[in-house]
Design a protein around this nucleic acid. Structure first.
Lengths: 248, 248
DNA sequence: GCAGCGAAGTTGTCATGACTTCTTTCATCG
DNA sequence: CGATGAAAGAAGTCATGACAACTTCGCTGC
């Protein structure tokens, strides 16, 4: 499969494989570093680096004199999966669906210009979509893109494909995102699309996605039906994660 | 201050200090590993380990041929700060407050028994508190503890101290937590305490906290006023974090 | 003045060896 | 038979040395 990857990456992949395949079961002790070194024929460095990666994801815990144990067999969702509704739905074996409510080009308001890091009145492209999970409404996604990104979307087949996939094909790759999560009451229009009463509580995730140079690719406002979707975060005393509780 | 800590920990602390003090400014290049090695008089290992920790927290980015840059000067909130309302409020320079609405001992319902990993009808202690930020209502916290934990709380000065601090003093230390985040409509009672209309959207975080042995210390249901508090998460393509979007 | 190229510097990766600290296990003693 | 303690095993920590891959910057030629 992959021959030119660093050793520690190959080891990591091999270990993930064993955990997923059940060769290393949940609660099991992982083989000792010494035996792993012997098996893979490397030095201790790469082995420890691979184990450290697993540990950082919470796949294994413990150690300090004793071999670590397998903690979780389900890995944290990758960046892709967390950013793309389509990828996510597929990863949990649900069929994604969507209805484009609006796709328009317009000048940026002052607020949007600030969020996207562009000048006011520069053109932006706004896409509003209703997202479905197994045919049922799950969330409303409102995303605003600067024109250099958005122009590709106006031309694309929004009903069929995923925005994320479309952009990837154009080598516009998101590498960093910041999510602000809170709750809002459903606007009458949102409520109609989602099939709930106006004023119902919705879980809102506002997202700013950036490319490798720090340029903003999109500013999105996702409103989930809490009965369909939740966010789950795990936290340990050892590992700080980029999660903060902030005053509004 | 600390003399017996591992070298890489000391280096990490020193670097954090420099970032916070502004010696290393945001956007700056971090000194090269070679110069850090020379300055601290260690080998490259501990230096790289310290840098790796900073990187895992998103404090520095880049590298690969070029010295890394300082990305963020505000560290991710520590486990303590994220778990304890009191600690959190203090860390953002707001004064925490609270009113105990209820503190009671009762037999566990089936659902609560399952969450806490105890037998149904075993005793549990439930504490319901209104939490204030600068005197204003910010959230309602409902926490349920197994009796071996809760009995200390019934005896403690709940109005004055923090549950977290109380438990720490008893060597009951949370080390792992799982948060499920969604949105709910305010119950009439909650609404009254929080000073909003019944049915208003609230940001709900359900939390299960465990000790080092995996035993459940508390199962909590926090309901935040979205106008007072939000959760912020940062995500990069390189680092997976224990964050998932899940179907409800 | 600008583009392209090459050298130097820096980080990524890996091996080896050694010591410390903690856990586990097992044998021994009460 | 249980508790205690010693020994063995394992992970944590650190140093040293080396090479590869990448970035940056200055120099040269156009």
């Amino acid at each position: 499969m992959s021959q030119n990857l660093p050793l520690h990456t190959q080891l990591y992949d091999a270990m993930i494989q064993r955990i997923r395949s059940g060769a290393w079961k949940e609660g099991d002790r992982v083989p000792s570093e010494k035996s792993l070194v012997a098996e893979f024929g490397t030095s201790r460095g790469p082995v420890r680096q691979a184990l450290a990666s697993l540990r950082a994801e919470g796949m294994i815990v413990g150690g300090r004199g004793a071999p670590p144990r397998v903690q979780r067999t389900v890995p944290a969702q990758s960046f892709d999966t967390f950013l793309s509704f389509t990828e996510w739905a597929r990863s949990i074996d649900r069929s994604p669906g969507q209805r484009v409510i609006e796709a328009s080009r317009r000048p940026a308001t002052e607020e949007i210009a600030r969020e996207l890091g562009i000048a006011p009145d520069e053109a932006v492209v706004e896409v509003i979509r209703l997202r479905l999970l197994d045919g049922e409404p799950a969330m409303i996604e409102r995303s605003v893109h600067p024109f250099w990104v958005g122009r590709h979307l106006l031309a694309a087949d929004l009903d069929g494909g995923s925005i994320y996939q479309t952009l990837l094909a154009l080598h516009i790759a998101p590498v960093r995102a910041r999510h602000v999560i809170d709750a809002v009451a459903a606007h009458p229009l949102d409520a109609e699309w989602l099939g709930v009463a106006a004023g119902s509580p919705l879980l809102r995730a506002r997202r700013v996605t950036r490319d490798e140079h720090g340029g903003v690719i999109e500013s999105a406002d996702d409103r989930y039906l809490p009965s369909m979707t939740t966010f789950v975060i795990e936290n340990t005393a050892e590992h700080r994660i980029p999660l903060t509780r902030e005053p509004a």
